[in-house]
Nucleic acid binder design. Structure first.
Lengths: 210, 210
DNA sequence: CCATCTTTTGAGAGCTACTCTCATTTCATG
DNA sequence: CATGAAATGAGAGTAGCTCTCAAAAGATGG
């Protein structure tokens, strides 16, 4: 049957055969999707085509990803960012912490796998600005990430995570940061994204601790 | 055939018969939708049912509203808000202006048609927090309104409407305000929404003029 | 009032994302 | 190798949405 569709990262060596296969199909589906989108565009790409190229059935595609948009967008980095935020010194201001962890995770990704940043991240951003369905999904996931971030923000400021101020401030930040990346994409990725993010954060007050 | 499905506001007297009929079907579709949603919920309500109750064909429904979510959400008030902002004194700070016009338009709507605010607005807010598809659509339209608002913000601050700062600041505001209404809805509309909005705006810097 | 032209509508076919069910295959385990 | 559990495929079904084309309804000029 289908073997060696993809090669796995070293980190996956200790997984059971089942788990490894699952990971493989997951990656195969995502790669197939990226390929097809680059060839034909997002809308012209059907789930059936994706399934064909990934050598699985359409049912399987939906078993791995709830929606077509999720194939493109699913990432597992958000909780990581929250952990990073938690590990910053407590006397640092919230905005400074954010600046640091964004810078940190971006340079991390950049040195770890530069082609990923160039190819995948920019494709995502492009789809986000161009395809309404994808953008909606991004915003949807933004409000989920926002909830996570709320907890971290609450910790740092000694407030409750359900405080109006915490929630409103956090979602304001997320909206602004999202807009910054849209701006960057619309301007053909000119200039340093990190600079734009600095300028973005500079338009915010610090949320006072209490 | 179908006559007198709905009564029209006085403002529509001078329209041609054709225009008046169009308006009627539009309103009929929306009312049918609201009714069905209150009876069965959003997802359980199909476009076919909506068409049946509004006494039109499904094709017609889609001719009037591009998507099912739009039936619930379409409003034509956003440009009005931008005009209001434009009419505020130039020496007033941006945040103060926003506070004023939000207060103004809400009390206007409240005195004009209180049942609308109670019924329709709260239904919308509830759908927005509960139905993912609707929320996405709201966010989508938020970024459109954001563009409008950018122009007004740019005018007031003597910046360009495509400035990173303008765009980022504006979208931050919109995200925060949206979150405030979600907060209000989740807390069963307790307390004064206007107070929540004041507290929301208080978490923002003023965007300096240049 | 009638004829003609234009706009709006309805009927229906078609596409695709997404769900569910059930039988079959593939891996894990004693 | 046998038995149980998990993953897959095949297929049918739903609903949102698009498109086409012919019929109905409103506008207009004589």
């Amino acid at each position: 049957m289908t073997t060696a569709r993809t090669s796995l990262p070293e980190a996956a060596r200790h997984l059971s055969l089942r788990e490894r296969k699952k990971l493989k199909t997951r990656i195969a589906i995502r790669n197939a999707t990226y390929e097809l989108i680059e060839e034909q565009g997002y809308d012209a790409t059907t789930v059936e085509q994706i399934a064909d190229r990934a050598e699985v059935s359409p049912s399987t595609v939906f078993r791995y990803f709830p929606t077509k948009e999720d194939i493109v967008l699913t990432d597992e980095y958000d909780p990581l960012a929250v952990d990073l935020l938690r590990s910053r010194p407590a006397d640092e201001s919230l905005l400074d912490s954010l600046r640091s962890i964004i810078r940190q995770s971006m340079t991390m990704a950049m040195t770890d796998d530069p082609s990923f940043v160039e190819r995948e991240m920019k494709l995502r951003l492009r789809l986000m600005t161009e395809v309404p369905a994808v953008r909606s999904r991004v915003m949807e996931s933004m409000s989920l990430t926002g909830r996570l971030l709320c907890r971290a923000v609450a910790e740092r400021t000694g407030r409750d995570e359900n405080d109006l101020e915490v929630r409103v401030y956090t979602m304001g930040l997320m909206g602004a940061l999202l807009e910054a990346s849209i701006y960057w994409t619309e301007h053909d990725y000119q200039g340093d994204l990190l600079d734009l993010i600095d300028r973005t954060l500079a338009t915010f007050k610090d949320l006072p601790k209490r």
